[in-house]
Design a binder for these strands. Sequence first.
RNA 1: CGGGCUGUGGCUCAGCCUGGUAGAGCGCUUCGUUCGGGACGAAGAGGUCGUGGGUUCGAAUCCCGCCAGCCCGACCA
Length: 511
Amino acid sequence: MSAPQSAISPRREEDFPEWYQQVVRAADLAENSEVRGCMVIKPWGYGIWENIQRYLDARFKETGHSNAYFPLLIPLSYLEKEAQHAEGFATECAVVTHHRLEAQKQPDGTTKMIPTGELAEPYVIRPTSETIIGAAFARWVESYRDLPLLINQWANVMRWEMRPRLFLRTAEFLWQEGHTAHETAEEAMEETKLMHKVYETFLRDFLAVPVIAGEKTARERFPGALNTFTVEAMVQDRKAIQAGTSHFLGQNFSKAAGIEFLGRENKKQLAWTTSWGVSTRTIGTLIMAHADDDGVILPPRVAPQQIVILPVTPKPDTREAVIDSCEALARTLRSQTYAGEPIRVHVDKRDLPGGARNWEWIKKGVPLRVEIGPRDIENRTVMVGRRDLGAKAKEAMPKEDFIQNVEDILSQAQANLLDRALTLRNEHTKKLETFDEFKAFFTPKNAEKPEIHGGFALMHWAGTSEDEDKLSAEFKTTIRCIPLGDEYVEEGKCFFTGKPSSRRVVFAKSY
RNA sequence: CGGGCUGUGGCUCAGCCUGGUAGAGCGCUUCGUUCGGGACGAAGAGGUCGUGGGUUCGAAUCCCGCCAGCCCGACCA
């Protein structure tokens, strides 16, 4: 009878991880499958991914990259070529050891399939493709004239994670991985930074998620990389999430794979390589950054549908006129653009109780809901609900005004989400000086049932990887990055070792 | 991989201790009444109780093995 306080239970402050799972379910984004750790991405969730792909793919092409595709299976020996890399991924690899099945009739009449045909050399299902792409690059590169080689692939990869969570950490996930080879270290570093910048812009402008861009410490680096650049977002439980990484691989992988070329001085040289990736994890980031206790809130730019029109049909005799009016409005809106693309509009004509249908779209996070009923047709008005202003927000406006201003309204919704996320991050980012302050910041007040606490701590740091281990063991905090901006540069003293430090780093708990 | 817990209609779960052969709420279908609104009533569909074995006249319930999932650790995009 009476509607619950909020559509999602528990609410964020009650149990954030459970809230997250319920939001994913309520919005019909994805579900756990029968395959351990692997999810089924449902149309609404996949629609988000398609938009992410479309945006990023355009940026990659603009910056000179081409798409290609490499095998899912990697010869085991390839993974052994780069020692650090091999160790980094060793504990999470699925291994293919057989290539055929034999049907065996059981006494009870059933059939069992027995793997036979053992492979001489097992294959590993790619956890990432540096090694096999490196082998291809070695074949493709002979001269400095073949460089730079700028390749991206859209693919699935598999990492046998211990504790999977929808979107955030699944055994199989979708991503793009860029792989490039260059003549000089400078060029490769420039590429690494360029793609890092692309990711930062993507998160901010497209997903409305502000990020701190920075460099990883040695402890947090990609296995085999000389440098890893990251973009770190803060989500609503104040934890950090790594939303994209760009790696400067130096000559490690060229050495391992033999990516050699004849240089301008007729000398054999090793190429300098990079790799960079963004995964379906960004969908989890998006949810945790923006969703509220009534479900997902999608920034318009990434929403599969930006506007859903809901015909209000109280009486059968006006139903057809209302639907016609909705369809006409949809056509008008679709002929307009937002952020350079035709506006995506859906008319939900399903014969469902109006309230239930409305709530479905609230939980899915569609940016604008537009209701049109018989009275609106008479008055030439529409009821507009902006999801970013809350589930209940609803405003009547003349239809012509809405059509005139729809692009602005979408822009405002997009900007509002970014502002809100930025405000949250600023509120929970603190410059701290002492170990005691650090400890207080990262210690929950209620140890039994830890409340949402902490955030980003900007600390002076001059410690070692072992010191990072200690802090990680005691507080579950890690250095998320050494941020790039000038605002982090200042003289001070490391809070842990007391040694002099010339810039602050970002400490946080993370996903 | 260690420690704890759990597997029962689509979903959430009760029943298990004290064995007698399956229940609720939500969801779904149909009909009616409502309806600018996450409505109400009635009727109905839907379950080899994770799996294999054992004990028993009889097992969702007791015992053993296996599998899967969840939570807490270690690992991670």
